[in-house]
């Protein structure tokens, strides 16, 4: 039987109350939302928080997907199933639906949340790469107010983020833009597993030229990794198979995979190249509305 180490449990009834509870409890408290990353870690005793602050009762404040001030804003307690089903999200950022279709299974997706996924900062987690490619920002709320952090500065290492012990990630913000296209490509050992490797791509195409580009990989480095050299290559160029092939080549060189049960390094570098190329190809087709 897998049983977490003992802990104390409390339910937050407001966001301010949850932050106050975190502050009072100190560094050994953790927020629990869907629990589908944290509870497995606790069962394996890889995490042993002394106190859990359950924020599931804050759905009316923290579960939403809406368009506001030129951004799509996603509440941290929005569950995977809602991200998958959202037409608003699919319209602006189809990369979310691509990723959600291959995250775990429908029953797990009924519980897991976007905030929990990002804060877990598992190097093989999908939404972190999605949000990095989209150059999303996250809102962190703490006792002294809120701060906004770029997704690309969010992870400090595997399973470690900039979120302070008394802060809660409350919202994800992504700027919308006409001419945007995005896609996610993942290879896994079996349906619903963590990726062997995955690539997220986001392009903005204006007048036939790539005005902005984001490329991020999952499971191909010790953290989510952005391929900035590929982004620089893409920016200002006209989309083409040769360009995407070159960008894939850079991803293959710049990723930093480790050999494990999912495959050796050379295979994973190969995957990084192929998946980056495919994701860019689909992102461009969506931006140009030529997707087959």
């Amino acid at each position: 039987m897998q049983t977490p180490a003992p802990f104390e449990y409390e339910r937050a009834t407001s966001l301010a109350g949850a932050i106050a509870a975190l502050k009072a409890a100190g560094a050994e408290a953790r927020v629990i939302a869907g629990g589908h990353s944290l509870l497995p870690m606790m069962k394996l005793r890889l995490a042993s928080p002394e106190r859990l602050i359950d924020i599931n009762d804050l759905e009316s404040d923290l579960a939403y997907i809406r368009e506001q001030q030129g951004e799509i804003r996603i509440g941290a307690l929005t569950r995977h199933a809602e991200l998958l089903d959202s037409e608003l999200l699919a319209e602006h950022f189809p990369v979310f639906r691509d990723a959600e279709e291959v995250i775990a299974d429908p029953v797990v997706r009924n519980r897991g949340t976007i905030g929990g996924s990002l804060c877990q900062a598992d190097p093989g987690e999908d939404l972190s790469a999605v949000c990095a490619a989209l150059k999303a920002h996250v809102v962190l709320q703490g006792p002294s107010g809120e701060r906004i952090v770029a997704m690309r500065e969010f992870q400090l290492g595997p399973y470690v983020t900039v979120v302070a012990p008394d802060e809660i990630l409350t919202e994800v913000r992504i700027r919308t833009s006409p001419g945007a296209g995005s896609a996610y490509e993942k290879v896994e050992r079996r349906a619903g597993d963590f990726a062997i490797g995955a690539a997220a791509a986001a392009l903005e195409i204006e007048g036939g030229t790539i005005a902005a580009a984001g490329v991020a990989l999952s499971a191909l480095a010790p953290t989510t990794i952005e391929i900035t050299r590929a982004e620089e290559l893409l920016r200002g160029a006209r989309p083409s198979e040769e360009l995407f092939e070159q960008a894939g080549g850079i991803a293959s060189e710049d990723c930093a995979p480790m050999a494990d049960g999912r495959g050796p390094v050379d295979y994973k570098r190969h995957l990084a190249g192929v998946l980056t190329k495919r994701a860019l190809r689909r992102a461009a087709a969506r931006a140009l509305q030529t997707e087959a």
Binding site: Y9, I32, G35, H36, L39, P40, L52, D54, N56, P106, V107, V108, N110, R111
Partner: peptide, 18 residues
């Protein structure tokens, strides 16, 4: 799997308190 407010969830990964 049991239903929680009508939706299927994996009860090995939900605390009774939740």
């Amino acid at each position: 799997v049991v239903l929680m407010d009508g939706k299927p969830v994996k009860s090995c990964t939900v605390l009774a308190a939740m």
